[in-house]
């Protein structure tokens, strides 16, 4: 009974405390929103002035802004606005905004937050340093490219690329944590906007003990068509990790040579179904008539699902693929007859 009474009183007190807290936070949020509304006008005006200012024109900060910039909430607010503007615009205009960022000494906040214990503040500071291209943050950013927190890590990796371009990929030499598929997509997107450059270190990355680094290096080879690395990519078709082999299959096809199809057929049998499908997809892109014969051989040995993919590859490579398929033994029996009639309909439509 004592327990019940205790729980009873505790729950009543706690309900009352929660009620008061709710009202308090709601009021605080309302005040914050009103404050932001009044700052919004002020900062928009200031940012617009800087955006469209001529190169050597000095714009003085108003007394109000000077006064407001002494408070942390306003500094956070205007920093966010400047970052959004820099991401939206490009060229000379962003240089003016960088001037404003430095004039307000927001870089000092960035430096402070880049060492913050809260991961999201640290990650945001690093991202801001990258967007504003604050060169003096290079060392801080680089040392965080292998941080245990994935957000800090990836923001540092992106920031490094923003700061020094392709040379920023040097983090691949040191990272021990895997780069997820998602972040590989993000990094490739960052690199795509840069002018293609020499890739120092690809050979080294292809030998990394970190599988995701090998996969990412292979993606770089494929995306930027780095023909010089053909032999290295070819060697990775024999890698013990199936994901590395899958990426090697996809990348080698983007820098393909006459012998590529033969090399892919050579590994076909021992590959898992996912890699086999990838090989067939890539071979269909080559449109090499020499691949028809090995494909027809495979048609007799594989499972029904793969048979469909092989047959599709044949008709993609050869215009007379359907006729070729119809000449095969077993063309009138299931499943090949269904596959052929399906492909006929697809070709006709």
């Amino acid at each position: 009974m004592y327990l019940l009474n205790l729980l009873f009183f505790l729950s009543l007190y706690f309900s009352a405390i929660l009620l008061v807290t709710m009202v308090f936070f709601s009021y605080a949020n309302k005040r914050k929103k009103n404050r932001y509304l009044s700052w919004d006008k002020e900062t928009n005006h200031l940012i617009n002035e800087y955006l469209f200012a001529e190169k050597n024109r000095v714009i003085e900060l108003s007394e109000n802004v000077k006064e407001l910039s002494k408070t942390k909430p306003f500094r956070d607010f205007i920093a966010k606005k400047i970052i959004i503007a820099v991401k939206t615009f490009s060229g000379e205009t962003t240089r003016n905004l960088k001037k404003l960022y430095l004039l307000l000494k927001l870089n000092e906040d960035t430096l402070y937050n880049s060492k913050h214990v809260f991961w999201y503040l640290k990650a945001r500071a690093i991202r801001n340093a990258g967007i504003m291209k604050l060169d003096n943050f290079h060392d801080i950013i680089f040392e965080n490219t292998n941080h245990k927190n994935d957000l800090i890590r990836i923001e540092s990796q992106i920031a490094l690329i923003r700061l020094i371009g392709f040379d920023g990929l040097k983090f691949l030499n040191i990272i021990t944590y895997p780069i997820s598929e998602w972040y590989q997509i993000v990094l490739l997107k960052e690199l795509k906007v840069l002018d293609p450059d020499h890739f120092k270190g690809i050979k080294f990355w292809l030998k990394s003990y970190n599988k995701s680094v090998i996969i990412f290096a292979l993606k770089l080879i494929g995306s930027f068509h780095l023909f010089d690395f053909y032999t290295d990519t070819q060697k990775l078709l024999q890698h013990k990790n199936k994901k590395v082999r899958l990426q090697a299959i996809q990348s080698i096809s983007k820098i393909f040579k006459e012998t590529t199809a033969t090399e892919l057929f050579a590994i076909f049998d021992k590959e898992p179904i996912e890699n086999k499908t990838a090989i067939l997809k890539e071979i269909s892109k080559f449109k090499d008539p020499n691949t028809i014969e090995p494909l027809l051989k495979l048609l007799h040995s594989e499972n029904p699902s793969l048979k469909t993919k092989i047959a599709k590859t044949i008709i993609t490579v050869d215009k007379n693929g359907i006729a070729l398929l119809e000449k095969q033994s077993g063309a009138n029996a299931h499943p090949l007859n269904t596959i052929i009639s399906q492909l006929k309909e697809e070709t006709n439509s």
Binding site: L4, L7, F8, S11, L12, F14, S15, L18, L19, T21, M22, F25
Partner: peptide, 18 residues
């Protein structure tokens, strides 16, 4: 006991709102 069960339910809702 009813009040206890009732206030526990309310606390849960209040925490969600907060």
């Amino acid at each position: 006991l009813f009040i206890l069960l009732y206030s526990l339910k309310i606390i849960h809702s209040f925490i969600a709102i907060l």
